[in-house]
Amino acid sequence: MVTEQRARPRTEPGPDRRRRARATKRRSAYPYALYLPAAVVYLVIFLVPTVMAFYFALTRWTLFDSTFVGLQNFRDFLSEQNLRIGFQNTIFYAVVTSGLKVVLGLLLGVLLTSKLRLRFFLRSVVFFPVLVSTVAVGFTFSALLRPDTGLVNKALAVVGVDGRDWLGDAATALLSVALVDVWKGVGLATVIYIAGIMSIPRDYYQAVSVDGGTAWHRFRHVTLPLSWPATYSVILLSFIGGLRSFDLIWTMTRGGPGFTSDTIASIIYKQYQAGFFGLSTAGNVLLFLVVTAVVVPLNHFLGKRQVAV
């Protein structure tokens, strides 16, 4: 009996042990508590609106009322007569803008990480358009590209070249907007490339120089492959931005002339303007699915390429 009474306190946790257990639990929960503010913001700003968008895409809704119609909005949006043109324009716009940003961003990144005397000033100049409002850029270039009074055609006339209505011609409207998009966004791509190139160890360049390699060899065998993480980021960011592009196209052409420069986003906005809120919400959901269907395989492919390097 005495033995049992003496052994019992050894098996039961004492006050100190319980306090240590509670302190351990608090310490283990502490890191997760730091995620809570970000999780609440993510829930309120992204998850809740996304779920609501999927629901309202299945309804005909106004500010005060909604009627469930199932998949009818999706059928109506997919039967939109300009959707095929908008889809082609969206893919063309995304490919052109992302491709040019990669090429120009890489070249400018190499130039602005060299021993150029004015490289710090030029970095600011290249990045400046990124800071300017997209709407302001659109209105400014709309004025610059006017056929009669625009500065671009006046400059071309000085060298004996006849200008054209860049934004009023179906053959050049979308390409003109895409080039303005490249001008505005190449600064961000350049900054990403500068960071990527500066992270490459100098030993690799010294090894190429010791072997008698030229500047081209340093670029081809060191800079190009080892800056792949930067290329990976620029391609994804630029392509996603191109697929979702709206504000620059709307301020410069409004999808015109006619519907020749319409993208999926501008078609959706025209449905909003016409008061077809459920239809345009269904268009937004379809655009989200299109971007996901394109970007997820692209991300997987580029990720495998990144591992291979």
Rank of each mutant, 00 (worst) to 15 (best):
L174A: 02
F246Y: 15
E4K: 11
A170Q: 15
S142L: 09
I235H: 07
R220V: 07
A308S: 12
A33K: 00
F121Y: 14
S209A: 15
S261G: 04
P225E: 08
S98F: 03
R117D: 03
R305E: 13
V161S: 05
R254T: 09
V180E: 04
A155Q: 11
P229S: 04
S233P: 00
A136L: 13
L34E: 01
T149M: 06
L156S: 12
R17M: 01
E4F: 13
A39G: 01
L224V: 10
F259T: 15
L302Q: 10
R20S: 06
T251R: 00
L78G: 12
T292V: 12
A21W: 08
L131P: 06
W216E: 04
V132A: 12
V285Q: 01
V132K: 11
W166D: 05
F288D: 00
N153T: 10
A230V: 04
F277C: 02
R26A: 09
I197T: 08
T67N: 05
F87N: 02
W228M: 10
W166M: 07
D262V: 08
D76Q: 13
A39W: 06
Q5S: 10
S266L: 14
L287R: 01
V137E: 03
K154P: 00
W216R: 15
V102R: 01
Y32R: 01
F219T: 10
G213W: 01
G70Q: 09
Q5F: 07
P15V: 04
S79H: 14
L122T: 09
N284T: 14
I91P: 00
T67L: 03
Q273H: 11
G275Q: 07
R17G: 03
A38M: 11
V309A: 10
K115H: 13
S199M: 12
T190H: 06
D181N: 14
A215W: 12
F139A: 09
K115W: 09
A53Y: 01
F46M: 09
P13F: 00
V186Y: 07
V208A: 03
R27W: 08
S98H: 05
G14W: 02
F277E: 05
R254K: 15
A57S: 15
H300G: 04
S238A: 15
S176T: 13
F239Q: 02
N153G: 10
F288W: 06
R8H: 02
Q273N: 14
L286W: 07
A29R: 03
G258S: 13
R27V: 04
D262Q: 15
G99I: 07
V180G: 02
V137S: 11
T214D: 14
V285L: 04
L145A: 08
L179R: 03
V95M: 10
L43G: 13
Y269E: 13
F139L: 14
A7Q: 13
V159A: 06
K184W: 07
I91Q: 01
R22Y: 10
Q81M: 10
Y93W: 11
W166C: 05
V180I: 15
R20H: 04
V182K: 04
L175V: 13
S233I: 14
V210I: 15
V110H: 08
I192P: 00
R146W: 05
G256E: 11
L175T: 12
Y272L: 15
L287H: 03
P225T: 06
K304R: 15
F77T: 07
L188H: 02
T90C: 03
T59W: 04
F139D: 03
R220P: 06
G109T: 07
V210M: 13
L78F: 15
F120A: 14
N299W: 09
N82L: 12
I268H: 11
D162E: 14
T59P: 08
R244H: 00
